[in-house]
Every structure is written in C-alpha cells, then in structure tokens.
Nucleic acid binder design. Structure first.
Lengths: 198, 198, 198, 198
DNA sequence: AATGAATGAGGTTTCATTCAT
DNA sequence: GATGAATGAAACCTCATTCAT
C-alpha cells in the first residue's frame, strides 16, 4: 500500500529530523534515545522499528546527507565546462550547504567521528564518490593541460577536501564566526586553482 | 626535594606513555583506566595522583605533543629565510612527526575528537600557536611581495593545516597507505606555495 | 453459528500447535509472541483474541494436554481389574505419551516450570486428577489386601509420578537417550508394584 | 595475604546468602541484582567483583549446595554396611537437608530450572555424583544378592531421586504441608528397598 | 474478526572515581 | 606516596500488549 509506505517514510524522516536536532545540540553521546523519541513525538520503542540501533541513526543521517550533497554538487557542476570552475563551484556549494544545514553539518563533522567503526568503515566508501567529483575535475584539468601533470590527483583532491572541512569545522564550532563561509570557499578555491595551474 | 620531583615526573611520563599505547590500540572510549594502570605498572588509584580524570590524560597527551611539535617546527624553520621554504619545511616536519609517532598521532587525530569539550575549548587555543607559525610565514610572504595581498592569512593558514591533517588522518586510519606521507607533504606544500604566489 | 465456532476452534488449535512447536524449539522465555504468530500464520494481535496473555497460551497447552492424558489413561486402565496392572499400564501409557508427543512433553516438563505462578497454582489442581488415578489404584490395592496397609497413598502416588517424571525429563533433555522409555516404564512399575506389595 | 582472602571469601558468602534469601522469596527472575546487593549490604557493582553475572550467582548457589550435600550424604552413609540402609539414610538425609535449608532448596528446586542452559549442561554433571551414591548402593545390593539382578541401576537410581525430588518440590511449594518430610523419606525408602529386594 | 504499528516499562552491567588502609 | 576494593549512576534495547483501522 502506497499510503502505508508514505506514512512509514514520513515517520522515519520525522525521527531522523529529531535526531539531527538533538544530536547537534547535545552531542551524540550525551543524547539519549529517549531524547530523540520525545523530540520526534514517538515512543522510545518506535525508534527501533525504523532503526536497528542508536548508531544506525547516525549512519542514516550521514548517508542521507551524503546522498543529497553528492546529487546537489553533481547537478551544480554538471553544466560547467571548465574543470577549474567546477572546483570553484564545488567549494562554494559545499560551504553553502554547511551554512544552510548547520545542524546536519555539525552532526556530520563533529559527532560522526565519535565512532571509530564509522571512521574506519563508512567514511572512506561514502566519501569516495564525493572526492571523485574533485578528483575528476583535477584529472580533466590535467588532460586539458590546465593542471600540472606532476600533481597527484589522489593527494590533491583529499587536500582540497581537508581544507574545506577544517574551515567548516571551525565555523561550526565557533558560535561567532569571524568571516563568512562563502569568502572562505572562494579563497580556498583560488588557492587550489592557482596551486594546480600548469 | 629534586629527586622526588624527578621520580614524580618519571611516573607521570610512565603513565602518559602507557596511555598513548593503550589509547592508540583500543581507542580512548574503549580503554579503561585500569588498562592504562596495568600497562603503566601502577595501581588504578595512582593514576589519580597524577591526573584529575581520564579526560585529563588525553588533554595532557595533547598538550605535551603540541609543545614538542611547536618547539620542533620552530627550530626546524627558524633558520629559513624564505617564508615559502618555511611552509615547505612545516609540511614535511608535520608529516614526519606523524609518521614517527604514529601512536601519539593516532590519539591526537582520532581519539581526541571524541570529546566535544576538547574540540571546543582546547583545540582552538592549543592549535593557535601552531597555526601562527603558518600564518606568520604567509604574512611575511605578503610583506616581501611573494604572496598575493588578497590572500586572507587566517583562512589560508587553516586551509593549509586542514589539508595536512586530512591526509594524515587517512594515513593513520588506513593500515596500508598507498603513498608516503613525505610525498604528500611535498605535494601539499607545492600546491599552497604556488597558490599563494603573487 | 456453528461454522463460526468451528472456525474459531480451528484458529485456536492452529495457534496452540504453533506455540507447542515454537516453545519446544526455542523455549518459552526465548519465544516471542510474534514468533508464535508467524508460525501460526496469524497477526500478533490475533493471538490476543484467543488468549489473554502469553502465559495463558502455556496454561492452555498444559490443560489440553492434561485433559487428553487423563482421558487416555482412564480409558486405558478402565477395564483392568487388578489395581497393580493399572499402575503398570499407567506407567507405560505415560511414557508412550511422552515419546509420541515429545514437543508437547518438552513444553510441559521444561518450559512450564518457568512460571512460579504456574507451579504454585495450576500444577497442583490440574495434576490432582492425574495423581488420583494412581492413588485410587493404590487404595483399591489396599482394600483388596494386595498393598501394605502402612503405605501412605498420598506419598506413594506422588513418588510414583515423580519417578516417571524425572526419567521422562532426562529423556527429553538428552538428545541421545541410552535406553527406551518403555523399558523405564516397566522397571519403575515393577519397583513400585513390588514395593507396595503386602 | 590471608586476611584479604578471608575477607574476600566472607563477602562472597555474604552475597551468596543474600541471593539465596532474595531468590527464594521473589524468585530468580523477579529478583533484581540491586535487591541482592541491598540485602547483602553491598553496592550493585560489588556483586560483579565476585560473580560474573546474575546467572553465575545461581550457578554458584547450586554448586556450593551440591558440594555440601554430596559431602554430607557420603559422610552419613559411609559407615553403613547394609546397602539398603544406605538408601534409607540417603532418603532421610536428603529430606532433612531440604527441611533445614528450605530457602536454598527452594532456589535449587524451583528457580534453577528456569535456565534451560542450566538444565541441559550443569544439572546432569553436577547431579551425577549424587546419583552415583544411590547407584553404588543398588549395585552393591545386587552383588550381595539383596537386590534383584534384573533391576537396571541407572533407571532405579534416577527413579529414586525423582521420587524424593517430587515430594520435596511439593513440600517447598506448599506453605502448609500435610505431612512431614521425614515420614515421606521413610515411606519412599521403604517402597524402593522392598521394590528392589531379590 | 483480523491486523500490525505503536507503545513504554524495566533491568543488567560497566567503569570512572574515591578513600580507608 | 601507593594501593585496589568498593561504589553507584546511567542508558540501550526488547517485547508483551493495545487499539485504531
């Protein structure tokens, strides 16, 4: 039945949204399952009809967010022909996303790292696709002679992501940020575009 | 009495080394205080004569490591006159340190982030001095006309650190790294030196 | 409507049979109501249209089994005139029943005892009638001068049942029994017949 | 240190005694670990310094009780030369023990059976030695021509134990017993001695 | 009558920390 | 100073039962 499926998806969404709010405010470890339940307007046990464990909620938040971000950044960069423009767009898109979805971003950046299991097993695979978008632009740049051939794309793409991530992390942790994320995105993109340039 | 002080410092060191080993192997959260005590050859209670809490051990590891790294990197870059050479040296020094002290680095990179308190309160201040070394080089570069004046040193220094940190993190988490940290350090330094260049 | 009653009885039977299977395989405590529902091909809630609680299913299994056994053993011993033959027949009948309905027997013997409530309130009354058959034979034996008058029938009948029950329990718990239940029944009957003899 | 060992043994005993009381009153399942802790005058966590789990307490009660009973019945029957006297003594001793240690007996008889694991794995081996004492007496009786050679000692010994056990169980569960356990012991012993007689 | 999604109470165990010796 | 036995708070998850559909 479609109605049941829709209801089911709704309740899942409802719990997920509640979890993002709660986790971002109190932190994953300090959040109790019952906190999420109360925030989501469901009973404790209901959580377990939709998620296998407390950890699974975190994983789900990560997966949904990554799916959205990957789709979003692909759409945003698809029509850009210049690989370097794609990098610029990527940086801005990433930061805009962090800015607009601060709670989600906070959970991803800060809380997710709590789980060693996650860092070892989920992060690499899930991040791969995201990193590929950067890597592909760099390789395309090399093919077109725009990027130095001695650049190692594997290293460069991760360095690019690391630069963005560190700035985003600081912005999230600092209540009163001293500069906008957009400016940071542009600065970082410019640094890399010039740094990669042939 | 100096002898007593020395003994005291020794036992503190002994516990700290034990903690680095234990935390890096099992992770901070999964390590019990009694694990550290056993590894350090002292009784559980003795730990609390030297550290206020389990968290305090982690903080101490961080502070000692940062003190050493700051002193080390300052010594290593002091005699270099070219600011850009200082950046190159910084990157290599950072990665060499990660490589040589993998256990310590793992605790810092992975386990430390577990603590929300830490990330919010300790990291910024403690990191400041380390970041200053990068920032100072960039500013010096701008003063000498080597670095674009439109570069925001606050952003650039953090981006530089973020790039190094992300690569280091991956190397620590990946048992079999696909490339050496030294190569990464050089690639990243080159990217930034070119990216900053006027 | 008789058809409705018949259907109702059928579904009740269906649930009961599923419960016997599930309980005997996983044990009462480890069996979830939903396991019984699935095995019986009904929804969880349906169980509660036929039984007041999970415990009530166990009680019902016990009552049905006892009703059958009492009717069976009465029929089997009714035509026997010698009270001692009745005891022999009783033992053999009891063990045959255990052997043929191992799943049911397992639930009765092993799982039923889990419930303190059951042991205190149900067992005595429900078992009474079964024990009466033994007791009546012993008293008849005393009346006919076949059994020592100093035998306390209340004690003897329970001892007889306990002997059978302990052997049956072991047979149920031991996957590979070393001797047949029928031989045990005969040995026990012989022991008691001789032991009671005047 | 002997003093430490003694203290350790004392606290273990203390917890064990508390557990016997609590379990026999409320039942194993309904007893919370904190109930045992409170009754034993220790903190919840202290229980786990002496026992691996709640189940382990039950096992320990069983093992201690069996050790005592086996030693006691061996001592009580050792000097008896007539095998049949040994059976009589065994029955009386068993029942006296049940009567004097009603709480312990209740835990053993009623609560212990809760654990399927226990019934399958611990009971058989632990009971073996106890049953051997009965079996040895029967075999000795056969060797001396006092017991029918067609008696299967394996079956007979278990039947004897089952008879005693069933009566004991009833006495434990029935607040107001209608007859003394000693009379029951004598009746059962007499039944079996005569039943076994050549 | 039948369903099955939702409920929410309930308890074992771990482990950082204390403090009497 | 050093010990380590004792403490006790804290929370995830299960599953029998209900009730709106």
């Amino acid at each position: 039945m479609q109605a049941a499926d829709a209801r089911k998806r709704d309740k899942r969404r409802q719990i997920l949204d509640a979890a993002i709010t709660v986790f971002s405010e109190k932190g994953f470890h300090k959040s109790r399952v019952s906190d999420v339940a109360r925030a989501g307007g469901v009973a404790d046990g209901t959580i377990y009809l939709y998620f296998k464990s407390k950890d699974a909620i975190l994983i789900a938040i990560f997966e949904e967010a990554m799916r959205e971000m990957i789709a979003g950044v692909q759409a945003a960069t698809a029509q850009l022909t210049d690989p370097m423009d794609r990098l610029r767009r990527f940086a801005v898109f990433h930061m805009e996303n962090v800015e607009q979805q601060r709670a989600t971003a906070k959970v991803l950046q800060v809380e997710l790292r709590l789980s060693n299991t996650f860092m070892k097993e989920y992060k690499p695979t899930a991040l791969q696709e995201y990193l590929d978008i950067i890597g592909d632009a760099i390789v395309a740049g090399q093919d077109q002679g725009l990027v130095r051939p001695d650049v190692n794309p594997i290293i460069a793409r991760r360095a690019f992501f690391g630069a963005l991530d560190e700035i985003a992390m600081q912005w999230i942790l600092t209540p009163r940020a001293r500069y906008g994320l957009k400016e940071s995105a542009e600065q970082i993109a410019e640094l890399f575009v010039r740094g990669l340039r042939a």
